[in-house]
């Protein structure tokens, strides 16, 4: 149990209105185990209970029933929060502060000593690409810039476990590409990342394991490779083959009773093209 980053047992949340009349079943009996050091994707359409799950883990909401543990401690334990980073669904930040000030504030709340705090703030602002804007009040930031500073604040305490709720929402492709690189960077440092998203392309490239939620119910969970690989289909990727040779290979396959499903040039993703184009320009 102790080497699990996140564990939930029968986690259930019912939202009730003030008079306790109307109620929404937002999460039903969620059992999750997330290993340390993995990037875990929480997938699901809007309203499937991803944000609810994250808030329950952080103690912003209380479960109707069930329990959860973070890094081996009950998630209601205050101490454990010093090892956790959190990026909320939207950038809920103080608009009257600038980038440095807001990181400093959160750093102080974590009780990080001044010198260490200073160093981390500079590095994080640089890493998320806001160095030139670090003295501007957040009220002047664009949505993408707010997302970046949000990501920076989630790492101010050098967390072991980072909970990112839709980290790439509101970002342009370059931004989301960079953020994905940052997330892979965390993984290299041995951190655990839990990210929720409804953008599947985000998740496919970086997650080790995923869970799919729908209407508050866990539908599938497993490693991405396992879930996506089509066991009965085989793919060759080949370079420098003439048209005649292709014909010869196809014939060989047919002779061996295989059926060719498609032949053509593999297309890279639009994201890759976009990023390459923009990067070549600058």
């Amino acid at each position: 149990m102790d080497n699990l980053a996140v564990r939930t047992e029968g986690l259930t949340k019912i939202y009730r209105d003030f008079w306790r009349r109307k109620s929404t079943l937002a999460l039903t009996n969620l059992n999750l185990s997330i290993e340390r050091g993995e990037i875990f994707g929480l997938l699901g359409p809007n309203g499937s209970g991803k944000t609810t799950t994250v808030k329950l883990l952080l103690g912003l909401l209380f479960p109707t029933s069930g329990k959860s543990w973070l890094l081996g401690y009950p998630s209601s334990d205050l101490k454990i929060k010093s090892k956790i980073g959190f990026l909320p669904e939207e950038s809920y930040l103080y608009k009257f502060l600038n980038a440095e000030e807001i990181l400093d504030f959160y750093g102080k709340l974590f009780g990080i000593p001044r010198k260490e705090r200073r160093g981390r703030i500079d590095k994080l602002i640089y890493d998320v690409g806001l160095w030139p804007h670090r003295k501007r009040p957040l009220s002047q930031y664009s949505k993408g810039m707010l997302r970046r500073i949000g990501l920076a604040q989630s790492m101010i305490n050098n967390p072991e476990l980072i909970l990112l709720d839709e980290p790439t929402s509101g970002l342009d492709p370059i931004g989301s590409y960079e953020i994905k690189n940052l997330i892979l960077e965390f993984k290299k440092q041995g951190k655990t990342v839990v990210l929720s998203s409804h953008l599947l392309a985000d998740v496919q490239n970086i997650c080790n394991r995923i869970a799919i939620l729908s209407k508050g119910i866990l539908q599938v969970t497993g490693s991405v490779q396992e879930l996506l690989s089509q066991k009965d289909v085989i793919q060759f990727l080949v370079r420098n083959l003439s048209l005649n040779d292709i014909q010869a290979v196809e014939n060989l396959i047919k002779n061996k009773n295989g059926s060719v499903l498609s032949i053509g040039h593999p297309s890279s993703t639009l994201e890759e093209l976009f990023v390459k184009t923009i990067q070549n320009q600058s």
């Binding site: 952080l58 103690g59 912003l60 454990i80 010093s82 959190f86 909320p88 809920y92 709340l109 974590f110």
Partner: peptide
């Protein structure tokens, strides 16, 4: 209302 409270309550502070 602005949910800036999340940033405070997600820290190890009672």
């Amino acid at each position: 209302e602005d949910r800036t409270i999340y940033g405070i309550l997600s820290k190890p502070i009672s």
